[in-house]
Amino acid sequence: MAAPDDGADGDEPLLAVEDLTTVFHTDKETIRAVDGVSFEVSEGETVGVVGESGSGKSVTARSILGLIESPGTIESGSIRFRGEELTGGNWERHRGDLSIVFQDPINSMNPVYTVGNQIREALRIHQGLRGQAAREEAVRLLEAVGIPDARRRVGEYPHQFSGGMRQRAVIAMALACDPDLLVCDEPTTALDVTIQAQILELLDDLQREEDLAILFITHDMGVIEETADRVNVMYAGEVVESAPVETLFDGPAHPYTRGLLASIPGRTATGDRLPTIEGEVPTPTESASDCRYAPRCPDAFDACERVHPEHVRVGPDQTAACLLHEEVRPRPDGRGDRGRRRRRRGRRG
């Protein structure tokens, strides 16, 4: 597991997202789908972004790839790849350096071309390979992603592949661009659990062999636990907690993270009722002047509706955007004092 770059030595991480805000304009309102998101991905590292629907995780992925289309727009913030700013139309120069694998492989492939054709096309554009060299490389890539009988299957059409095989082929296409960063947007969500296990294993192997950095977007905490070195938890357009994966699962600091983990069946003794989070994820239309989780938060107190929580360090390598963790906060009646909370959490973290 790679240590996240703390920037102290001035080295730029592979990918640095800073204060990213992506909005969608509708007739009535402006939806702030991603609202001030920051995180980094270092070389060879897997960074997870986890959240429920409406959290903004997929829009974050698309923003990074430059795939936001009208009525959406990146309103502000910066996305730097190897130190170079991508926003403002600089994606073309890094087309092959960043690749994305979507949830639904069939939409990522063209049904009228063979799988081999599509991989060769990517190889031609991104690596300048043609003819026999491209053919050989296409077979090698299909073999690398664990497709048996690659030499024959390279000549088949996407519909002749099963779901799992198709996702492997899509990963092979993504690898044909020879990327440094692979963005995986729910790549296993449409797959059965035994096939998911195969794909996760494959990504893990590829990461080691090809020294890939992976940005892994998912709603599934189990998948995150398995794949990520570092996790960012998103809620209503914002990252509310960021921590190394073990830290997050052992000692979640944000009330939303805690609620989310508790509501997963299997983490609660089977005889018990599942703990729940009341209410629904809001759709943010204004920039936040409060904590967006406050209406649902069991720990909310009055300041939560007036103050927008900034990220504060709650452990050696863990941050949370929650006023419980602020340096100063009004003491609500009947609640334990902040110092005690912090000490307890400090031990855990």
Binding site: A197, E201, V223, E226
Partner: peptide
């Protein structure tokens, strides 16, 4: 094959091949 640590089985993963 259930991902994550909370699954309660401490067996090693048995990865099935194929579909």
């Amino acid at each position: 094959a259930i991902p994550g640590s909370h699954t309660g089985t401490d067996r090693d993963r048995v990865t099935l091949r194929g579909t």
